[in-house]
């Protein structure tokens, strides 16, 4: 039994909090399916909390039809279907899945509809408060991850990683006098990870890449990022004398990572 089969069967259970013996063997020994079973159980518990008022039957059917025709929540892969010997078996499997999931979808639809039509008092302070929750560094890191998800070339990866490293270095310096040594050490650790495991490792890849990018262009690219790391190192070094010893240790870690990265990028 492969993981996808197991996970589909867990979804098809009347109550995924109760895993039958046939599946338990796999679930107990497979981290992915174990996590999946736990998530299915959480979903089940959440569904149980949904208030589901009796909805007009036709309206609900229409909503459901829309949802299902737009996209079935779970599309069993072709391989999975083949595992079911007869056509009626696979239809039954599909029907069981669809019924369970459309029930869940219906519950969400109804609940969301109920909540969106229930009048409730307006709150005016939200805008200010949300702005107070906005953390520019987090936003930048999420955007960096979005760009990395789609990055289709080494130069693009380098560009995004270098920007993330710059953002973290700038914030670390900005926090050097107020954050604790522990917190700064975390920030320096993020920087180190991006420079050492990301930037430097991608730079090595770029150098190895035989075609596509001319050597001169490679050198120019790597040199520009090396210069940025050098600037990070210099600015961090200037700050060292002005912060408490505990913070100095964290900043030194960032400084070392910047210098090491610079060397790697320059091929030294």
């Amino acid at each position: 039994m492969n993981c996808q089969t197991v996970q589909n069967q867990i979804l098809a259970l009347p109550d995924p909090r109760d895993i039958p013996a046939a599946l338990q063997q796999h679930v107990l020994h497979c981290a992915a399916c174990h996590a999946w079973a736990q998530q299915a159980a959480r979903l089940e518990a959440l569904v149980a909390q949904l208030p589901v008022p009796p909805a007009p039957g036709q309206k609900k059917d229409a909503l459901l039809g829309e949802l299902i025709s737009a996209e079935p929540l779970i599309q069993p892969p072709a391989r999975l279907t083949a595992l079911y010997r007869s056509a009626s078996d696979s239809r039954r499997f599909l029907r069981r899945n669809t019924m369970y999931l459309s029930g869940l979808a219906a519950a969400i639809l109804v609940a969301v509809a109920v909540y969106s039509f229930t009048p409730r008092p307006h709150r005016h302070q939200h805008d200010e408060v949300t702005q107070a929750e906005d953390y520019p560094l987090l936003r930048k890191i999420v955007h960096g991850n979005t760009a990395l998800a789609r990055a289709d070339s080494l130069p693009r990866k380098l560009e995004v990683l270098a920007q993330m490293a710059d953002d973290i270095a700038a914030d670390t310096r900005g926090m050097a006098r107020i954050a604790s040594g522990d917190e700064l050490r975390d920030m320096a650790g993020w920087y180190e990870k991006i420079v050492k495991d990301g930037l430097a490792s991608q730079a090595r890849e770029l150098r190895k890449q035989p075609v596509g990018i001319p050597e001169a262009e490679k050198t120019r690219l790597l040199e520009s990022y090396a210069a940025r790391l050098q600037a990070d190192a210099r600015m961090t070094e200037q700050l060292l004398q002005e912060v408490p010893p505990e913070s100095q240790r964290a900043l030194r870690r960032l400084l070392e990572a910047a210098r090491e990265g610079e060397k790697t990028l320059r091929g030294q």
């Binding site: 991850n145 998800a149 995004v160 990683l161 993020w190 990870k193 991006i194 990301g198 991608q202």
Partner: peptide
């Protein structure tokens, strides 16, 4: 959260 995002971001790059 940022620690996790940095790790996964680097993994994506690799």
């Amino acid at each position: 959260l940022i620690g996790n995002l940095v790790s996964e971001g680097v993994e994506m790059a690799n």
